[in-house]
């Protein structure tokens, strides 16, 4: 499946990665070759094979419904770029 400039731009936007046109052009080339390598998979017949999401056949363990965490806001917000009155700040969101 060939990769186009628009595909890279679209992926970059979905992934919220700012790319210059030059960078995008370079990624079209890189990603194109990676996908070409990946396309090898298409040659393999996988009809009827169940997808494998985890390497072990184990099931989800459930946690008891207990409050185990205490407030650590000040510790957690020490590594935050912008906070005010305990809130994380971002540029105004228009709804």
């Amino acid at each position: 499946m060939a990769l186009e400039h628009a595909d890279v731009q679209r992926a970059a936007h979905l992934a919220r990665l700012g790319l210059t046109d030059d960078e995008a052009a370079r990624y079209v080339d890189d990603l194109g070759r990676i996908l070409e390598m990946v396309d090898m998979l298409q040659a393999l017949d996988t009809e009827g094979v169940a997808p494998l999401a985890h390497p072990l056949d184990v099931t989800q363990r459930l946690r008891a419904d207990e409050v185990t965490e205490r407030d650590q806001r000040s510790r957690f917000q020490q590594c935050a770029p912008a906070v005010e009155n305990g809130l994380y700040l971002v540029p105004r969101v228009v709804e």
């Binding site: 499946m1 990769l3 890279v8 970059a12 790319l19």
Partner: peptide
């Protein structure tokens, strides 16, 4: 990292 984010985003997107 950007390369792999872009590959992953592309291969998960609709139609692929």
């Amino acid at each position: 990292v950007k390369r792999r984010i872009l590959i992953g985003t592309h291969t998960l997107s609709e139609g692929f």
